[in-house]
Nucleic acid binder design. Sequence first.
DNA 1: TATTGAAATAACCATATGATTATATTAGTA
DNA 2: TACTAATATAATCATATGGTTATTTCAATA
Lengths: 107, 107
Amino acid sequence: MDTKQVVAMLKALADPTRLKIIALLQTRSCCVCELVPIFGISQPAISKHMSRLKSVDLVIESRKGQWVFYTLNKARLEQVAHALGNLPDYSEEFSKLEQQGLLVTCE
Amino acid sequence: MDTKQVVAMLKALADPTRLKIIALLQTRSCCVCELVPIFGISQPAISKHMSRLKSVDLVIESRKGQWVFYTLNKARLEQVAHALGNLPDYSEEFSKLEQQGLLVTCE
DNA sequence: TATTGAAATAACCATATGATTATATTAGTA
DNA sequence: TACTAATATAATCATATGGTTATTTCAATA
């Protein structure tokens, strides 16, 4: 997972409504019409949040009759948590700075 | 750490520049004037990013002469990663839904 | 086929975000 | 004390975000 993807997933999670949706989905898959009364916001608002979460594969959509159920992609959530604890090594940036004489060495 | 704080930290991390700054600080503390040539954006832009990271305690500021050095708060970064893997249990929300007859039980 | 209910999309709006340039502020030094 | 370098703050701007209402799409059913 590259940095762009990590940022996209963090953006998807960095909203109180979406983060709680993810937490709710840990208990049970659910559909839009169940989330509406929980959050007290409009159906289109919930729908857009689900679309955002789906776009980064944090949830999986499946139609059951007239309802669309959303299921948490637990592996994907673990991937973000793991990525945060294992950020890329950019030490070569400091080598470049040193070559340019831009490294600040204090005391 | 409550949900509000987790969201604030995720927002702070959900930007390509700030996420790379955090990654850079894993190698070495640095000051604003070192980050400017790395990212190629203006000094005030970097300054605001640092202020944002500081506001959620992801970095610690310390003045060394004319420079202000920023150090990664590794414990804080680990806290976010841990929080993502241990989101709160909201199962009572489904009990409430059930009581209201709003739970969708399919098939 | 007409109707109903769930979800998605469109159009819109207020606020947040990330950048810019210009201007303080603060610390070291001639 | 005046000057310079590093950083922060202010004002501004274009775009992104998260909500709204209105409308469309899609599946089940009378």
